[in-house]
């Protein structure tokens, strides 16, 4: 009974937040001197124009799902991984290096690139986890610093040892077509990596909610001291969740290279590692929630893309809106009057 009331409240909140976000979007469109009705029409048309545009949602969501789920898992265990950006790039770098240097092409190459990308991202996050669990150094600062170290290292790599010998631009050679993740729906960009992302989200959900590993991770996130007293190793779980979280971001990097860009170059993450933090927050750190939130974010991206092309409404609107949503989620607690102390006391008195 309690549960249904909570669910009802949550549904009401979501509707309210969606309505307010729509209102903000309308105001922003008006600020551009365009008509909100026309913008809305273009927004929906942009999404459902054809199978390519629908597939594009999944293409854009793919890195966000992986990094978002990764952040959600880490946050649930109380490990603030702000380093998805760096883990993404290190995964992309190592994945590219493996893919280009292996003599054999084909599925084995793809698999190895993905595994190595996972390991690279995971190991990068592990640095922060080890510093946190042994010296109690803030993982937030370390992961942020590692982001920039990796981004600069990538800039160096694409100009030197990974540079395409035949080109003059700072990017790697092209991934062999046999080792690319090809589209699985014809005439769209819907590639096999998207399935990997969705499966990863499902596995993480299963892991977090149905296994002892997930239970331990959540226990550590909920109350470290209680977990320790209960015989759960805090250090082990921090390391575990950091590795998983970084690994997922690393896979996202590999997929971006071998499915979309087909080569390594700078700036390919489009800041998805940072957006992932907000995706995880919106999802309440739930892996399936992160999957859905990433898909919604990508849908809005595709829709506003069409608004930008046709009406000149800047697509920066997407990030303004996600910021607004994050604030509204927090503000939601204000709308629930019971958070105010005096009302609570009145209720209890009754």
């Amino acid at each position: 009974m309690m549960r249904t009331a909570e669910t009802m409240q949550r549904v009401k909140d979501i509707i309210l937040i969606a309505a307010l976000t729509l209102l903000i979007a309308a105001v922003l469109v008006l600020a551009c001197g365009a008509s909100p009705a026309e913008a809305m029409q273009l927004f929906i048309q942009g999404i459902f124009r054809n199978r390519q545009s629908v597939a594009e949602i999944f293409v854009k969501a793919c890195p966000l799902i992986l990094t978002g789920v990764g952040c959600a898992v880490a946050f649930q265990a109380g490990f603030f991984n702000i380093g998805a950006e760096g883990q993404f790039y290190l995964g992309a770098l190592v994945g590219t290096a493996v893919s280009l240097s292996l003599p054999l092409q084909g599925p084995v190459n793809i698999l190895l690139a993905l595994v190595c990308g996972f390991l690279a991202g995971g190991l990068l996050a592990l640095i922060a986890a080890l510093l946190k669990s042994t010296f109690n150094i803030s993982e937030i600062i370390v992961t942020i610093m590692l982001n920039y170290i990796v981004i600069n290292f990538l800039g160096y790599a694409v100009r030197t040892f990974l540079k395409d010998p035949e080109g003059n631009v700072p990017q790697s050679a092209k991934i062999d077509p046999a080792s690319q993740l090809l589209p699985i729906i014809t005439s769209t960009r819907f590639h096999a990596g998207i399935l990997i992302a969705i499966i990863a989200a499902l596995i993480m959900w299963f892991l977090m909610s149905r296994t002892t590993i997930g239970y331990e991770l959540k226990a550590v996130g909920f109350n470290q001291r209680a977990a320790q007293v209960g015989g759960i190793s805090v250090a082990k779980n921090i390391i575990r969740c950091a590795f998983l979280s970084g690994g997922l971001a690393g896979i996202a990097g590999v997929i971006e290279v071998i499915a979309i860009q087909k080569k390594l170059l700078e700036g390919i993450s489009a800041s998805c590692g940072y957006t992932a933090v907000l995706i995880a927050l919106i999802a309440g750190n739930h892996p399936l929630g992160a999957l859905i939130a990433a898909l919604i974010y990508a849908t809005v991206q595709v829709g506003t893309g069409s608004m930008q092309r046709q009406l000149g409404v800047p697509n920066a609107i997407v990030n303004i809106l996600i910021g607004a949503v994050v604030l509204l989620i927090l503000g939601r607690k204000l709308l629930h009057l019971e958070t105010y102390g005096f009302l609570k006391r009145k209720k209890e008195a009754k």
């Binding site: 940072y274 920066a316 997407v318 990030n319 910021g323 604030l327």
Partner: peptide, 20 residues
């Protein structure tokens, strides 16, 4: 609220607002 998450929210929101 969590300082890190809302700091990150500012990092995503404010540059988008500026660009807009």
């Amino acid at each position: 609220a969590e300082q890190i998450v809302y700091g990150m929210a500012i990092n995503i929101f404010a540059p988008a607002l500026a660009a807009f």
